[in-house]
Amino acid sequence: MIQITVNVNGEDFDVDVMPELTLLDLLRELGFHSVKKGCGEGDCGACGVILDGIYCKSCLVLAMQADGRSVLTVESMGNVDEPHPLQKAFVDEGAVQCGYCIPSMLLAADALLSENEDPTDDEIKEALDGNLCRCTGYVKQINAVKKAAKVLREEENDNE
């Protein structure tokens, strides 16, 4: 067992992990069930998290690699009462059906908007190219990201 400390959504967790444990499995053991296990081998993208500011697939990160690092899951973005503009836009645009791929897709979109406040359709498609969705057909999510980007830009202008 290897002793690590990992910060998830602002809270430190001291845990002993098996060397082969992935960050995905650790997060789920810690109760962060928004991080989904689909393929478990880096294809489907349902397990995406933000690790020290970088959007990645947590099934391809060993838990021990996250020692001393910070992880953000979708719980850090918002909740039912106070949804993040991306979360609200995904619901409003009907970009969510079964929801399995959505937490990771929201984080991918958030990572994009943190670098690019007014992305083109192609830039959104590229940012979401690691996320498989078998329900909605990859159109509504793009509309949702554009809508949220607009809301976030307006919020920023209002604050200036």
Binding site: G48, Y55, C56, K57, L60, V61, E126, A127, D129, G130
Partner: peptide
């Protein structure tokens, strides 16, 4: 190379 989250790593 693959997709954005893989290219990031």
């Amino acid at each position: 190379v693959s997709s954005t989250p893989i290219r990031n790593m």
